[in-house]
Design a protein around this nucleic acid. Structure first.
Lengths: 206, 206
DNA sequence: CTGTGTGAATCTATTCACAGCC
DNA sequence: GGCTGTGAATAGATTCACACAG
Protein backbone atom coordinates (compact mmCIF):
# COMPACT_ATOMS: atom_id res chain seq x y z
CA UNK A 1 0.00 0.00 0.00
CA UNK A 2 0.99 3.60 -0.64
CA UNK A 3 2.62 5.20 2.36
CA UNK A 4 0.01 6.85 4.57
CA UNK A 5 1.11 9.64 6.87
CA UNK A 6 0.59 9.49 10.59
CA UNK A 7 -1.45 12.70 10.47
CA UNK A 8 -3.85 11.15 7.97
CA UNK A 9 -4.38 8.18 10.28
CA UNK A 10 -4.99 10.41 13.27
CA UNK A 11 -7.51 12.45 11.34
CA UNK A 12 -9.33 9.32 10.20
CA UNK A 13 -9.64 8.35 13.87
CA UNK A 14 -11.16 11.72 14.57
CA UNK A 15 -13.55 11.55 11.63
CA UNK A 16 -14.74 8.17 12.89
CA UNK A 17 -15.51 9.64 16.28
CA UNK A 18 -17.55 12.42 14.70
CA UNK A 19 -19.36 10.03 12.39
CA UNK A 20 -20.39 7.98 15.41
CA UNK A 21 -21.72 11.11 17.06
CA UNK A 22 -23.63 12.08 13.93
CA UNK A 23 -24.99 8.56 13.62
CA UNK A 24 -26.18 8.67 17.24
CA UNK A 25 -28.13 11.82 16.36
CA UNK A 26 -29.74 9.99 13.48
CA UNK A 27 -27.95 11.92 10.75
CA UNK A 28 -27.57 9.67 7.72
CA UNK A 29 -25.51 11.78 5.36
CA UNK A 30 -22.65 14.25 5.77
CA UNK A 31 -20.43 16.45 3.62
CA UNK A 32 -16.66 16.75 3.79
CA UNK A 33 -17.17 20.40 4.76
CA UNK A 34 -19.23 19.47 7.82
CA UNK A 35 -16.75 16.81 8.89
CA UNK A 36 -13.94 19.32 8.39
CA UNK A 37 -15.59 22.02 10.48
CA UNK A 38 -16.00 19.54 13.31
CA UNK A 39 -12.44 18.33 13.07
CA UNK A 40 -10.78 21.71 12.69
CA UNK A 41 -9.50 21.05 9.18
CA UNK A 42 -10.55 21.74 5.59
CA UNK A 43 -12.94 19.90 3.32
CA UNK A 44 -10.16 19.30 0.81
CA UNK A 45 -8.11 17.66 3.55
CA UNK A 46 -10.98 15.35 4.45
CA UNK A 47 -11.49 14.33 0.85
CA UNK A 48 -7.77 13.85 0.28
CA UNK A 49 -7.43 11.72 3.41
CA UNK A 50 -10.24 9.46 2.22
CA UNK A 51 -9.04 9.38 -1.36
CA UNK A 52 -5.95 7.38 -0.35
CA UNK A 53 -8.27 4.47 0.36
CA UNK A 54 -10.94 4.79 -2.29
CA UNK A 55 -13.94 6.95 -3.15
CA UNK A 56 -16.75 6.59 -0.71
CA UNK A 57 -18.90 9.66 -1.37
CA UNK A 58 -21.60 10.61 -3.84
CA UNK A 59 -21.00 13.76 -5.83
CA UNK A 60 -23.49 16.47 -5.03
CA UNK A 61 -24.61 14.59 -1.94
CA UNK A 62 -21.81 13.78 0.45
CA UNK A 63 -21.11 10.61 2.37
CA UNK A 64 -23.42 8.08 3.97
CA UNK A 65 -22.67 8.33 7.68
CA UNK A 66 -22.90 4.59 8.49
CA UNK A 67 -21.10 3.53 5.31
CA UNK A 68 -18.22 5.92 5.80
CA UNK A 69 -17.93 4.94 9.46
CA UNK A 70 -17.78 1.26 8.48
CA UNK A 71 -15.19 2.02 5.83
CA UNK A 72 -12.97 3.94 8.26
CA UNK A 73 -13.30 1.14 10.83
CA UNK A 74 -12.05 -1.18 8.10
CA UNK A 75 -9.13 1.06 7.25
CA UNK A 76 -8.09 1.45 10.87
CA UNK A 77 -8.37 -2.28 11.49
CA UNK A 78 -11.19 -1.84 13.98
CA UNK A 79 -13.37 -4.65 12.68
CA UNK A 80 -11.65 -7.10 14.97
CA UNK A 81 -10.78 -7.00 18.64
CA UNK A 82 -7.24 -6.78 19.98
CA UNK A 83 -5.72 -8.63 22.89
CA UNK A 84 -3.75 -6.17 24.97
CA UNK A 85 -1.50 -6.65 27.97
CA UNK A 86 -0.36 -4.01 30.39
CA UNK A 87 3.14 -4.15 31.82
CA UNK A 88 3.34 -2.07 34.97
CA UNK A 89 0.58 -1.87 37.54
CA UNK A 90 1.13 1.71 38.55
CA UNK A 91 -1.13 4.72 38.59
CA UNK A 92 -1.10 5.37 34.88
CA UNK A 93 -1.75 1.72 34.13
CA UNK A 94 -4.67 1.80 36.54
CA UNK A 95 -6.14 4.82 34.84
CA UNK A 96 -5.75 3.29 31.40
CA UNK A 97 -7.38 0.02 32.27
CA UNK A 98 -10.51 1.78 33.49
CA UNK A 99 -10.68 3.97 30.44
CA UNK A 100 -13.92 2.99 28.69
CA UNK A 101 -12.71 4.17 25.29
CA UNK A 102 -10.37 1.21 25.05
CA UNK A 103 -12.88 -1.57 25.51
CA UNK A 104 -15.48 0.25 23.41
CA UNK A 105 -13.14 0.19 20.46
CA UNK A 106 -12.26 -3.46 20.82
CA UNK A 107 -9.05 -3.28 22.82
CA UNK A 108 -9.36 -5.92 25.54
CA UNK A 109 -6.83 -5.98 28.33
CA UNK A 110 -6.21 -9.63 29.06
CA UNK A 111 -3.43 -9.43 31.63
CA UNK A 112 -1.46 -7.06 33.84
CA UNK A 113 2.13 -7.67 34.89
CA UNK A 114 4.33 -6.13 37.53
CA UNK A 115 7.61 -6.83 39.25
CA UNK A 116 6.63 -5.66 42.73
CA UNK A 117 5.70 -8.57 45.07
CA UNK A 118 3.35 -6.22 46.91
CA UNK A 119 1.29 -5.76 43.76
CA UNK A 120 1.48 -9.28 42.38
CA UNK A 121 -1.70 -11.18 43.16
CA UNK A 122 -3.83 -8.12 43.84
CA UNK A 123 -7.02 -7.62 41.84
CA UNK A 124 -7.23 -4.83 39.30
CA UNK A 125 -10.44 -4.25 37.48
CA UNK A 126 -11.27 -7.94 37.44
CA UNK A 127 -7.72 -9.02 36.60
CA UNK A 128 -5.10 -10.43 38.92
CA UNK A 129 -1.70 -8.76 38.63
CA UNK A 130 0.80 -11.38 37.51
CA UNK A 131 4.53 -11.65 38.12
CA UNK A 132 6.27 -10.24 35.06
CA UNK A 133 8.46 -13.36 35.13
CA UNK A 134 5.53 -15.23 33.60
CA UNK A 135 5.40 -12.86 30.63
CA UNK A 136 7.17 -15.08 28.10
CA UNK A 137 5.37 -18.27 29.11
CA UNK A 138 1.97 -16.55 29.03
CA UNK A 139 2.55 -14.98 25.63
CA UNK A 140 3.74 -18.30 24.21
CA UNK A 141 0.48 -19.89 25.35
CA UNK A 142 -1.79 -17.02 24.37
CA UNK A 143 -0.30 -14.51 21.92
CA UNK A 144 -1.36 -10.89 22.18
CA UNK A 145 -1.59 -8.07 19.68
CA UNK A 146 -0.55 -4.99 21.59
CA UNK A 147 1.45 -4.36 24.75
CA UNK A 148 1.14 -1.19 26.79
CA UNK A 149 4.33 -0.38 28.67
CA UNK A 150 3.83 1.68 31.83
CA UNK A 151 6.99 0.83 33.73
CA UNK A 152 9.56 3.26 35.10
CA UNK A 153 11.92 4.58 32.44
CA UNK A 154 14.85 2.40 33.42
CA UNK A 155 12.87 -0.84 33.11
CA UNK A 156 11.18 -0.01 29.81
CA UNK A 157 13.81 -1.11 27.28
CA UNK A 158 14.29 -4.45 29.01
CA UNK A 159 10.55 -5.11 29.03
CA UNK A 160 10.31 -4.09 25.39
CA UNK A 161 13.13 -6.44 24.40
CA UNK A 162 11.32 -9.30 26.10
CA UNK A 163 8.03 -8.41 24.42
CA UNK A 164 9.70 -8.24 21.02
CA UNK A 165 11.38 -11.62 21.53
CA UNK A 166 7.98 -13.00 22.47
CA UNK A 167 6.65 -11.84 19.10
CA UNK A 168 4.75 -8.66 20.00
CA UNK A 169 4.52 -6.34 16.98
CA UNK A 170 2.85 -3.24 18.46
CA UNK A 171 3.72 -1.35 21.62
CA UNK A 172 2.20 1.70 23.24
CA UNK A 173 4.81 3.23 25.52
CA UNK A 174 4.11 5.59 28.41
CA UNK A 175 7.53 5.28 30.00
CA UNK A 176 9.59 8.45 29.47
CA UNK A 177 12.29 6.57 27.57
CA UNK A 178 13.41 6.38 23.96
CA UNK A 179 12.95 2.76 22.88
CA UNK A 180 14.82 0.75 20.28
CA UNK A 181 12.95 -1.97 18.38
CA UNK A 182 13.38 -3.91 15.13
CA UNK A 183 11.87 -2.36 12.00
CA UNK A 184 8.89 -4.70 11.93
CA UNK A 185 7.71 -3.62 15.38
CA UNK A 186 5.75 -0.41 15.73
CA UNK A 187 6.09 1.69 18.87
CA UNK A 188 3.98 4.69 19.73
CA UNK A 189 5.24 6.74 22.66
CA UNK A 190 3.16 9.07 24.76
CA UNK A 191 5.14 11.37 26.98
CA UNK A 192 3.11 13.55 29.31
CA UNK A 193 5.94 15.85 30.35
CA UNK A 194 6.72 16.51 26.72
CA UNK A 195 3.13 17.56 26.05
CA UNK A 196 3.31 20.05 28.90
CA UNK A 197 6.56 21.39 27.52
CA UNK A 198 4.98 22.22 24.18
CA UNK A 199 2.57 24.34 26.24
CA UNK A 200 5.31 26.07 28.22
CA UNK A 201 7.06 26.78 24.92
CA UNK A 202 3.87 28.34 23.58
CA UNK A 203 3.46 30.45 26.71
CA UNK A 204 7.09 31.55 26.62
CA UNK A 205 7.01 32.55 22.95
CA UNK A 206 4.10 34.89 22.53
CA UNK B 1 9.67 35.18 16.23
CA UNK B 2 9.86 32.98 13.18
CA UNK B 3 7.24 30.24 13.25
CA UNK B 4 8.63 27.12 14.90
CA UNK B 5 7.04 23.79 14.05
CA UNK B 6 5.55 21.56 16.69
CA UNK B 7 7.93 18.76 15.72
CA UNK B 8 10.91 20.99 16.36
CA UNK B 9 9.60 21.79 19.84
CA UNK B 10 9.00 18.13 20.62
CA UNK B 11 12.49 17.23 19.49
CA UNK B 12 13.99 19.99 21.63
CA UNK B 13 12.19 18.45 24.61
CA UNK B 14 13.74 15.12 23.78
CA UNK B 15 17.21 16.57 23.32
CA UNK B 16 16.92 18.19 26.73
CA UNK B 17 16.09 14.84 28.32
CA UNK B 18 19.15 13.25 26.70
CA UNK B 19 21.38 16.13 27.66
CA UNK B 20 20.31 15.71 31.27
CA UNK B 21 21.18 12.02 31.07
CA UNK B 22 24.55 12.79 29.54
CA UNK B 23 25.19 15.43 32.19
CA UNK B 24 24.34 12.92 34.93
CA UNK B 25 27.02 10.65 33.48
CA UNK B 26 29.50 13.48 33.67
CA UNK B 27 29.79 13.98 29.92
CA UNK B 28 30.59 17.61 29.25
CA UNK B 29 30.49 17.83 25.49
CA UNK B 30 28.35 16.24 22.76
CA UNK B 31 28.03 16.29 18.99
CA UNK B 32 24.86 16.70 16.98
CA UNK B 33 25.47 13.20 15.63
CA UNK B 34 25.45 11.65 19.08
CA UNK B 35 22.33 13.54 20.08
CA UNK B 36 20.70 12.46 16.83
CA UNK B 37 21.52 8.80 17.29
CA UNK B 38 19.95 8.92 20.73
CA UNK B 39 16.83 10.68 19.49
CA UNK B 40 16.31 8.63 16.35
CA UNK B 41 16.89 11.53 13.98
CA UNK B 42 19.75 12.97 11.92
CA UNK B 43 22.60 15.29 12.89
CA UNK B 44 21.44 17.82 10.31
CA UNK B 45 18.00 17.82 11.91
CA UNK B 46 19.48 18.50 15.34
CA UNK B 47 21.58 21.36 14.03
CA UNK B 48 18.66 22.82 12.07
CA UNK B 49 16.36 22.62 15.11
CA UNK B 50 18.88 24.50 17.19
CA UNK B 51 19.71 26.99 14.45
CA UNK B 52 16.23 28.52 14.67
CA UNK B 53 17.24 29.89 18.06
CA UNK B 54 20.91 30.71 17.62
CA UNK B 55 24.27 28.99 17.33
CA UNK B 56 25.31 27.23 20.48
CA UNK B 57 28.02 24.85 19.32
CA UNK B 58 31.73 25.07 18.62
CA UNK B 59 32.85 23.95 15.19
CA UNK B 60 35.03 20.89 15.32
CA UNK B 61 34.05 20.28 18.92
CA UNK B 62 30.32 19.99 19.40
CA UNK B 63 28.11 21.41 22.14
CA UNK B 64 28.76 21.94 25.83
CA UNK B 65 26.25 19.65 27.54
CA UNK B 66 25.31 21.99 30.41
CA UNK B 67 25.25 25.09 28.20
CA UNK B 68 23.05 23.52 25.57
CA UNK B 69 20.72 22.12 28.25
CA UNK B 70 20.41 25.58 29.80
CA UNK B 71 19.75 27.10 26.40
CA UNK B 72 17.01 24.60 25.58
CA UNK B 73 15.44 25.15 29.00
CA UNK B 74 15.37 28.81 28.11
CA UNK B 75 13.79 28.19 24.73
CA UNK B 76 11.13 25.89 26.17
CA UNK B 77 10.33 28.34 28.94
CA UNK B 78 11.50 25.96 31.64
CA UNK B 79 13.45 28.49 33.64
CA UNK B 80 10.37 29.35 35.64
CA UNK B 81 7.74 27.26 37.36
CA UNK B 82 4.15 26.99 36.21
CA UNK B 83 1.03 26.99 38.31
CA UNK B 84 -1.23 24.23 37.10
CA UNK B 85 -4.75 23.25 38.07
CA UNK B 86 -6.45 19.97 37.37
CA UNK B 87 -10.14 19.91 36.52
CA UNK B 88 -11.58 16.45 37.09
CA UNK B 89 -10.54 14.22 39.98
CA UNK B 90 -10.85 10.92 38.15
CA UNK B 91 -8.42 8.11 37.53
CA UNK B 92 -6.40 9.83 34.87
CA UNK B 93 -6.17 12.99 36.94
CA UNK B 94 -4.97 10.91 39.85
CA UNK B 95 -2.29 9.29 37.76
CA UNK B 96 -1.13 12.62 36.39
CA UNK B 97 -0.84 14.33 39.72
CA UNK B 98 1.48 11.63 41.01
CA UNK B 99 3.61 11.70 37.90
CA UNK B 100 7.04 12.86 39.11
CA UNK B 101 8.02 14.21 35.69
CA UNK B 102 5.64 17.12 36.12
CA UNK B 103 6.98 18.50 39.35
CA UNK B 104 10.58 17.85 38.33
CA UNK B 105 10.14 20.12 35.35
CA UNK B 106 8.54 22.89 37.31
CA UNK B 107 4.85 22.21 36.77
CA UNK B 108 3.20 22.58 40.17
CA UNK B 109 -0.37 21.45 40.62
CA UNK B 110 -1.94 23.99 42.94
CA UNK B 111 -5.56 22.85 42.96
CA UNK B 112 -7.90 20.08 41.87
CA UNK B 113 -11.56 20.62 41.02
CA UNK B 114 -14.46 18.27 40.59
CA UNK B 115 -18.24 18.45 40.35
CA UNK B 116 -18.99 15.27 42.29
CA UNK B 117 -19.96 15.98 45.95
CA UNK B 118 -18.52 12.59 46.91
CA UNK B 119 -15.08 13.68 45.75
CA UNK B 120 -15.20 17.30 46.92
CA UNK B 121 -13.29 17.69 50.18
CA UNK B 122 -11.29 14.48 49.85
CA UNK B 123 -7.51 14.64 49.98
CA UNK B 124 -5.49 13.95 46.84
CA UNK B 125 -1.76 13.95 47.04
CA UNK B 126 -1.76 16.68 49.65
CA UNK B 127 -4.47 18.74 47.97
CA UNK B 128 -8.14 18.97 48.87
CA UNK B 129 -10.51 18.50 45.95
CA UNK B 130 -12.50 21.71 45.54
CA UNK B 131 -15.96 22.26 44.15
CA UNK B 132 -15.58 23.33 40.52
CA UNK B 133 -18.02 26.14 41.29
CA UNK B 134 -15.14 27.94 43.00
CA UNK B 135 -13.04 27.83 39.84
CA UNK B 136 -13.62 31.44 38.71
CA UNK B 137 -13.26 32.94 42.16
CA UNK B 138 -10.07 30.99 42.84
CA UNK B 139 -8.49 31.91 39.53
CA UNK B 140 -9.35 35.58 40.04
CA UNK B 141 -7.54 35.49 43.37
CA UNK B 142 -4.59 33.39 42.20
CA UNK B 143 -4.10 33.20 38.45
CA UNK B 144 -2.67 30.03 36.98
CA UNK B 145 -0.65 29.29 33.88
CA UNK B 146 -1.93 25.95 32.66
CA UNK B 147 -5.11 23.95 33.18
CA UNK B 148 -5.31 20.21 32.69
CA UNK B 149 -8.79 19.07 31.72
CA UNK B 150 -9.60 15.50 32.67
CA UNK B 151 -13.39 15.64 32.71
CA UNK B 152 -15.78 13.40 30.77
CA UNK B 153 -16.11 14.42 27.12
CA UNK B 154 -19.51 16.11 27.53
CA UNK B 155 -18.30 18.44 30.29
CA UNK B 156 -15.02 19.43 28.65
CA UNK B 157 -16.11 22.31 26.40
CA UNK B 158 -18.04 23.97 29.21
CA UNK B 159 -15.06 23.75 31.56
CA UNK B 160 -12.77 25.09 28.85
CA UNK B 161 -15.06 28.06 28.19
CA UNK B 162 -14.97 28.92 31.87
CA UNK B 163 -11.18 28.57 32.00
CA UNK B 164 -10.80 30.81 28.98
CA UNK B 165 -13.10 33.46 30.44
CA UNK B 166 -10.99 33.31 33.61
CA UNK B 167 -7.94 34.17 31.52
CA UNK B 168 -6.22 30.78 31.15
CA UNK B 169 -4.02 30.74 28.04
CA UNK B 170 -2.81 27.13 27.94
CA UNK B 171 -4.82 23.92 28.31
CA UNK B 172 -3.81 20.29 28.24
CA UNK B 173 -6.87 18.24 27.38
CA UNK B 174 -7.33 14.55 28.11
CA UNK B 175 -11.07 14.49 27.47
CA UNK B 176 -11.91 12.75 24.19
CA UNK B 177 -13.55 15.86 22.78
CA UNK B 178 -12.66 18.39 20.11
CA UNK B 179 -12.39 21.77 21.83
CA UNK B 180 -12.98 25.25 20.49
CA UNK B 181 -10.95 28.13 21.93
CA UNK B 182 -10.00 31.67 20.87
CA UNK B 183 -6.84 32.06 18.81
CA UNK B 184 -4.74 33.33 21.71
CA UNK B 185 -5.35 30.20 23.78
CA UNK B 186 -3.28 27.11 23.09
CA UNK B 187 -4.80 23.67 23.58
CA UNK B 188 -2.91 20.41 23.40
CA UNK B 189 -5.09 17.31 23.30
CA UNK B 190 -4.00 13.84 24.26
CA UNK B 191 -6.35 11.08 23.21
CA UNK B 192 -5.43 7.61 24.37
CA UNK B 193 -7.89 5.74 22.17
CA UNK B 194 -6.54 7.54 19.14
CA UNK B 195 -2.99 6.45 19.96
CA UNK B 196 -4.12 2.85 20.11
CA UNK B 197 -5.86 3.26 16.77
CA UNK B 198 -2.67 4.32 15.06
CA UNK B 199 -1.30 0.98 16.28
CA UNK B 200 -4.25 -1.03 15.02
CA UNK B 201 -3.88 0.74 11.69
CA UNK B 202 -0.22 -0.25 11.58
CA UNK B 203 -1.08 -3.86 12.43
CA UNK B 204 -3.86 -3.99 9.85
CA UNK B 205 -1.68 -2.55 7.07
CA UNK B 206 1.43 -4.67 6.91
C1' DC C 1 -26.54 23.19 -8.66
C1' DT C 2 -24.03 20.78 -5.05
C1' DG C 3 -20.27 18.53 -3.35
C1' DT C 4 -16.83 14.77 -4.60
C1' DG C 5 -12.33 13.32 -6.44
C1' DT C 6 -7.98 14.67 -7.92
C1' DG C 7 -4.06 16.73 -10.58
C1' DA C 8 -1.47 20.94 -10.07
C1' DA C 9 0.31 24.61 -7.19
C1' DT C 10 1.86 25.98 -2.91
C1' DC C 11 3.61 25.70 1.40
C1' DT C 12 6.36 23.26 5.08
C1' DA C 13 9.75 20.07 6.74
C1' DT C 14 13.73 17.34 6.10
C1' DT C 15 18.05 16.18 4.04
C1' DC C 16 22.14 17.32 1.47
C1' DA C 17 26.43 19.29 1.00
C1' DC C 18 29.89 22.34 1.87
C1' DA C 19 32.15 26.72 3.41
C1' DG C 20 34.03 28.25 7.62
C1' DC C 21 35.80 27.95 12.23
C1' DC C 22 38.00 25.50 16.21
C1' DG D 1 40.62 16.92 10.77
C1' DG D 2 36.24 17.30 12.90
C1' DC D 3 31.92 19.22 13.43
C1' DT D 4 28.93 23.30 13.23
C1' DG D 5 25.83 26.46 10.74
C1' DT D 6 23.23 27.19 6.80
C1' DG D 7 21.72 28.06 1.99
C1' DA D 8 20.15 24.99 -1.72
C1' DA D 9 17.79 20.75 -3.08
C1' DT D 10 14.47 17.38 -2.16
C1' DA D 11 10.64 15.23 -0.19
C1' DG D 12 6.26 15.53 1.94
C1' DA D 13 1.84 17.55 3.28
C1' DT D 14 -1.78 20.81 2.50
C1' DT D 15 -4.54 23.78 -0.23
C1' DC D 16 -6.41 25.28 -4.61
C1' DA D 17 -9.37 24.91 -8.27
C1' DC D 18 -12.05 22.63 -11.44
C1' DA D 19 -13.93 18.74 -14.28
C1' DC D 20 -17.50 15.76 -13.52
C1' DA D 21 -21.28 12.81 -11.39
C1' DG D 22 -25.76 12.79 -9.08
Amino acid sequence: MRKISESTVRRLSLYLRFLEQFAAQGQTTISSAELARRGGTTSAQVRKDLSFFGSFGKRGLGYSVPELAAKIRDILGLRRTYRVVLVGAGRIGGALIQYPGFRQRGFHVSAIYDRDPKKIGSRWNGLVVRDVRHLEADLAREPIDIAIVVTPADAAQDVVDRLVRAGVKAILNFAPAQLTVPADVVVKSVNMALELETLSFALANR
